[in-house]
Write a protein that binds this DNA or RNA. Structure first.
Length: 416
RNA sequence: GGAGAGGUUCCCGAGCGGUCAAAGGGAGCAGACUGUAAAUCUGCCGGCCUUGCGCCUUCGGAGGUUCGAAUCCUCCCCUCUCCA
């Protein structure tokens, strides 16, 4: 993207790219002004984004924000990736389950490494600056914190929706929870941020930064938020704890398969937020699907391919597509199947025990149910519902399939 | 400090002395169908086995009452509401 240096991309075009998919932009006029100035002076904008050091498992939901960061990078701006090691030490106060054990410096360092590895699947490593906010927040001291706290007031804090609802319903709000947005705001002061990005749930915190900066003699930062991506189920937001996520480090075939399980409706949302396909391009595809010229499944495969390619490269994406087609359209077998040894007694093997041993069922009861429901196949032959044990010859193997997508190979060995 | 409400299986949420492994929904799994791990429909959804209407473990914790308790009593822990 040689031509996309700040000096060369017209402000109007930059606004168009940066505004795509954004939820809040405070304010559009100010961003335009900053972009114009940066273009005139040749000085890139400083874009700051904060990350909590406690959850280094990056999933597709996070990449919406990372992609936005990447867009700034591609336009020649300076992106600072702030790891909230200091704010992390305070601990995220929202969860009321017990105080979180403070992370050790080693853990933070390790998490930071994981972050780097995962984020650079989207970000440009050459143009990403990584900073830890303990650097300036630690130096602030208690006096500095008091001064910082004096910049804001309780009424303003209570404007934040979750604080307000908790306050009104009589739920506890610990004092230090108020420090969280302030500390984050101070990050912007310390880094002299021009723009801060975040998920739309961060809007309040980002705006605190905006309000505090003039008190420190700085121009207010621009606040730009990205939407929260819906998870695979299409209703809840994507999160690890809900299990409806696609991790960036997952196997290509897993990512591919998970994306294929997304509903046709949700597919367009993912196209918009997780790929570089233009809004017009998406609209065109939608129209083709409606008119019957493009099969929705093809469109979904395209989506899955793009995303796998982003994280694992083109080759992996093609392999994943081929494997998916082989398994689900032709009833084939994946390239790699786990193999375990199963002891044989008197020429026989208890079917339920084998399924558990192969990791295809979590208990004998579950294995029993699977058999009864006709969900088990041995070497592609359906197992009759009342089967208890199977004949097995030591030295042979059998391919066990449960449902459409769970495979394992049993290698029969003599029981000692 | 005072007065109330509540803690149920992965989640939400019924049950309020036996017929409760516990309604309903969600998630998950399987089957059918298909265009895919979409949608829809059906079934399953604590564990164990000698698969019986069997046994064991579950309804915040510990005791108790009872032939029998998720359901009643006592104490304790935790959450929430209102008053001060």
């Amino acid at each position: 993207m040689a031509e996309s240096r700040t000096e060369f991309v017209p402000v109007e075009r930059q606004m168009e790219i940066l505004g795509r998919g954004a939820v809040d932009l405070v304010t559009e006029a100010e961003l335009t002004k900053k972009l114009e100035r940066s273009r005139e002076t040749g000085k890139p904008l400083t874009v700051k984004v904060g990350f909590d050091p406690t959850a280094p498992d990056i999933h597709l939901g996070h990449t919406v924000l990372l992609r936005k960061m990447r867009q700034f990078q591609d336009l020649g701006h300076r992106v600072i990736f702030v790891i909230g090691d200091f704010t992390g030490l305070i601990g995220d106060p929202t969860g009321r389950s017990k105080t979180r054990p403070a992370l050790t410096p080693e853990e933070i360092a390790r998490n930071a490494e994981t972050y780097k590895r995962q984020c650079f699947k989207v970000l440009d490593p050459q143009r990403t600056e990584i900073r830890f906010n303990s650097e300036w927040l630690g130096a602030l001291g208690s006096e500095g914190f008091v001064r910082l706290a004096a910049r804001y007031n309780v009424a303003r804090m209570l404007e934040r929706k979750d604080f307000r609802t908790r306050f009104q319903s009589g739920q506890t709000i610990a004092i230090h929870e108020f420090l969280y947005p302030l500390a984050q705001a101070y990050d912007s002061v310390a880094l002299r941020a021009d723009v801060e990005l975040g998920g739309t749930d961060q809007l309040f915190n980002l705006n605190v930064g905006r309000e505090i900066m003039p008190d420190y003699g700085l121009e207010s930062q621009i606040v730009l938020t990205t939407p929260l991506l819906e998870g695979l189920d299409g209703s809840e937001k994507m999160s690890k704890s809900l299990g409806n996520y696609v991790g960036v480090e997952e196997e290509p075939r897993e990512i591919f398969g998970k994306l294929m399980s997304v509903s046709d409706d949700l597919m367009w949302r993912y196209y918009l937020l997780c790929t570089g396909v233009s809004t017009e391009g998406i609209e065109r595809m939608k129209a083709l699907v409606v008119s019957g010229e493009l099969h929705p499944k093809k469109a979904k495969e395209g989506l899955a391919m793009r995303i796998v390619a982003d994280f694992h490269g083109e080759t992996a994406a093609r392999t994943a597509l081929e494997e998916f087609q082989r398994i689900f359209q032709a009833g084939g077998v994946p390239d790699e199947v786990v193999e375990r040894e199963i002891p044989v007694e008197k020429g026989k093997v208890a079917l339920t025990k084998m399924l558990v041993a192969l990791g295809l069922a979590s208990s004998n009861s579950e294995a029993m149910r699977l058999v009864q429901q006709g969900g088990v196949r041995l070497d592609d032959a359906k197992v009759p519902p009342d089967t208890r044990e199977i004949e097995a010859k030591v030295g042979t193997t059998v391919l066990v399939k449960v449902g459409k997508r769970h495979f394992a190979r049993a290698r029969f060995v003599a029981s000692f």
